[in-house]
């Protein structure tokens, strides 16, 4: 474990908690893409199948359980508890355009052609594009509440910190996971446009992000 990965995991946890609390306390999921949240729940489900078979550390197990519980709880809030506030007309990204290529690629490019490894690869590829429905929804509505932008900031920051973690691990222990690194770079690039808007608009104290 290194400081970059720890800060990355904390940033990821903060993002997930920010979103969950925003929906739970405002009793509304307006402006939130339910599709992205379903994709994230799928990412955790296909990645953490080894939850009961391989024990890494208490931290690893606890964080996996927390991520799984909070992601499914968020999907529950959006599609069941506060479904009247779910803006399905704006959440129109065709997720099949993500799932099919990601599934195909995970069969073609993986470390080992076994179910558990292909599902892990699927989760890595899927995570890199899972935010697209949410970013698409913001461009479509032309705005986002500031709390939603803070969620996106910490979510984007987490994988950027993981890139630093992989640089650190490469130089200190020769660790290199090509599939995770390439996907992580792609994932972080998708946030660059948002990061620019976040820094130039939201941090200037605007109540919410309105796209030009």
């Amino acid at each position: 474990m290194n400081v970059f990965r720890l800060l990355g995991d904390v940033s990821h946890l903060v993002a997930i908690i920010i979103l969950f609390l925003k929906i739970f306390r405002s009793k509304s999921c307006a402006g939130i893409s339910g599709k992205s949240q379903v994709l994230f729940a799928l990412v955790f489900t296909t990645r953490y199948l080894d939850l009961f078979t391989s024990f890494i550390s208490i931290y690893n197990t606890v964080m996996k359980v927390v991520f799984l519980v909070l992601s499914y709880a968020t999907v529950y809030l959006i599609y069941l508890r506060f479904r009247s506030s779910y803006d399905s007309e704006s959440d129109t990204f065709r997720v099949e355009f993500l799932l099919v290529p990601v599934a195909g690629l995970s069969f073609l490019e993986n470390y080992d052609f076994t179910p558990i490894e292909i599902l892990w690869t699927f989760s890595i590829y899927l995570e890199s594009v899972a935010i697209l429905p949410q970013l698409f929804m913001i461009t479509k509505t032309g705005e986002a509440e500031s709390i939603t932008t803070h969620y996106l900031f910490f979510l984007g920051l987490y994988r950027a910190l993981y890139l630093a973690n992989w640089v650190w691990r490469y130089h200190t222990e020769g660790f290199f996971d090509q599939i995770a690194v390439v996907s992580g770079v792609v994932q972080t690039i998708f946030y660059c446009d948002f990061f620019y808007l976040y820094v130039t608009k939201v941090l200037k104290g605007n109540s919410k992000l309105t796209l030009p």
């Binding site: 080894d50 690893n60 996996k64 993986n110 470390y111 080992d112 995770a180």
Partner: peptide, 10 residues
């Protein structure tokens, strides 16, 4: 299949 990197990350 090349060696599978350890999966100790979240």
């Amino acid at each position: 299949d090349e060696a599978v990197p350890t999966k100790d990350e979240l």
